[in-house]
Design a binder for these strands. Structure first.
Lengths: 226, 226
DNA sequence: TTTCCTCCTTGATGTGAGTCAAGGCGAACC
DNA sequence: GGTTCGCCTTGACTCACATCAAGGAGGAAA
């Protein structure tokens, strides 16, 4: 008798590699929830109730408020957020705004904290996933500190395209103004910078972007162009 | 018969909360090593051999090379680095330059990867420590994206002082030029910015800094001062 | 003492991105 | 249809920080 939520758990990178026994324990406590676009799933400063694992649709993690808002990263299907806050039982450092309709698995933070002290497979997998997140953030910090706006945008576009070579088409994971603060720039600057990248084979049409050659863009990122 | 390296392990935040059984397993594989100032402990791109836990002295984590160098963070006694790379078995994303003489516990990455799949206490503790690091990095990203140079410097000085109120004296954790890139600015700008902060009660004398009132500095960070 | 470093500071000038302000464009609604 | 509203783009101007260039201060070695 397999639990009906197991197939959903298998879609989440954090849980997919776990043995059946662990998955079943998680399935017991997990809940499925729909959400709609342009809302907040949770806000900075709140106590951690759940971790969110996205089955469909996605969110953008933002820190700070209004004019001092910093977009940390976009998250979509298969990804999960809030593990750090849940494990430590500390208030969220960020808010999550939905970027589309969708549904998410919610795992209660308290129960997860219990499980992690009893289940090696789960604990080890959490550590590995957190390690991956750490590396993503390090990459972002290096990029902000060492590259200008145009290079950061180019790198971001490359990271958003699944392919690693040739031409690619992608859809921006959120509104342009969210993409702008993800890159640490203003919407006006994003607009101008996208125009500059036309010279390097980047065509824009609304929130859909076409890269003529990923290699060419990548060359631009790594060039010193003094 | 207690292992002689256990007292050292107890000084490391990552391991301190672990039960004796876990500590003994770690003690078996750990080694103690001295290092001297102005050298590299490891470099970006290398395969992970060890995680480094600092007993005495410290390092600065830097990404990139030379003129495109980004200082990620300073680490000192009780702290540890490279857990993410070790757990995933992926090449280092950063290099470590020593900022003083000192000694570190080295834990072999391969052995640690084995242990973590067998020892719940260790795995859970790694997950918690990685969660803490995640939150530190998120804080840094928010700060870079939402605050100007003077505010970032002020916040950094506050974070470096142990106290949370009143007056404080602190020593910069590295050379001024390293502090500068930690803040995402140039050494010249750091110099000028420190001068500006004199108006807010920050006195500089070489690498030693005196803050007259932490509350006053904190107020400056959070003010919009338009 | 001298030279020769390396690190830091200071001043003059340059520039990338921010700010301010106007308008375009599509979606939703009456 | 027309109106409104939110998102994006564009242009003119500003400013924070970078760059370039010239010392100064301290330490090490001869």
């Amino acid at each position: 008798m397999v639990h009906p939520r197991i197939p959903f758990l298998k879609k989440i990178a954090l849980f997919a590699p776990l043995p059946d026994a662990s998955l079943e324990r998680l399935a017991e406590i997990a809940g499925l929830q729909r959400f709609s676009n342009h809302g907040y799933l949770f806000r900075e400063g709140e106590e951690p109730d759940f971790i969110y694992c996205f089955i469909e649709g996605g969110i953008v993690l933002v820190g700070g408020v209004d004019e001092r808002e910093a977009v940390i990263e976009f998250f979509g299907p298969g990804e999960s957020v809030l593990l750090p806050a849940a494990l430590l039982g500390l208030p969220y450092l960020v808010s999550a705004r939905t970027t589309s309709d969708g549904q998410a698995l919610l795992i209660p933070a308290g129960k997860l904290r219990q499980l992690i002290d009893e289940d090696v497979a789960l604990a080890a997998q959490c550590a590995r996933m957190l390690s991956r997140h750490w590396r993503v953030l390090i990459g972002q910090i290096k990029e902000i500190k060492t590259h200008g706006a145009a290079e950061r945008l180019a790198q971001f576009l490359i990271s958003q395209s699944e392919k690693a070579t040739g031409a690619a088409t992608l859809t921006l994971p959120g509104m342009k103004k969210e993409v702008a603060t993800r890159l640490g720039i203003k919407p006006e600057t994003l607009s101008r910078t996208l125009k500059k990248l036309r010279d390097y084979g980047v065509e824009t049409d609304g929130d859909s972007i076409r890269i003529q050659s990923i290699e060419r863009l990548a060359a631009f990122v790594n060039s010193d162009h003094d």
